[in-house]
């Protein structure tokens, strides 16, 4: 599965980058959300994949060897929450931007005007 997941992550990153390069500010935010997803998945996959053995200690002999690595999961949880905060902020920022400037065209952001 690693190979498929790698492709999936590549596709997600690619999509995110493509969306970030659009002129519409909505797509920009979408791109940020995609980046977050792609990265969560990347942390998950890069840390090693273990099927169906969540990291709860149940006093089963030998469980520790089979168990999924809990650390990447903890990292992802932290990362998800952080990107939730930042993305929510970005969303409101975009909203505020639109209500002040009445445009969604990023090309009108030029600072040399």
């Amino acid at each position: 599965m690693l190979f498929l997941f790698a492709i999936l992550i590549g596709v997600l990153y690619g999509a995110a980058v493509y969306l970030l390069l659009r002129r519409n500010i909505f797509k920009l935010v979408l791109g940020l959300i995609f980046l977050g997803h792609a990265t969560n998945l990347l942390l998950f996959v890069a840390g090693g994949l273990t099927r169906g053995f969540p990291s709860f200690l149940r006093d089963i002999p030998g469980e520790v060897e089979k168990m999924a690595d809990p650390l990447p999961q903890a990292l992802i949880l932290t990362a998800i929450v952080i990107s939730l905060g930042v993305t929510a902020f970005a969303l409101v920022l975009v909203y505020r931007f639109y209500s002040v400037t009445k445009t969604v065209d990023l090309d009108e952001l030029s600072e040399n005007e």
Partner: peptide
């Protein structure tokens, strides 16, 4: 400020990623 912060936020977000 909003103009500036959109650039600021996006590029720094990408860097964090």
């Amino acid at each position: 400020q909003l103009r500036g912060s959109i650039k600021y936020v996006t590029i720094n977000f990408v860097a964090s990623i």
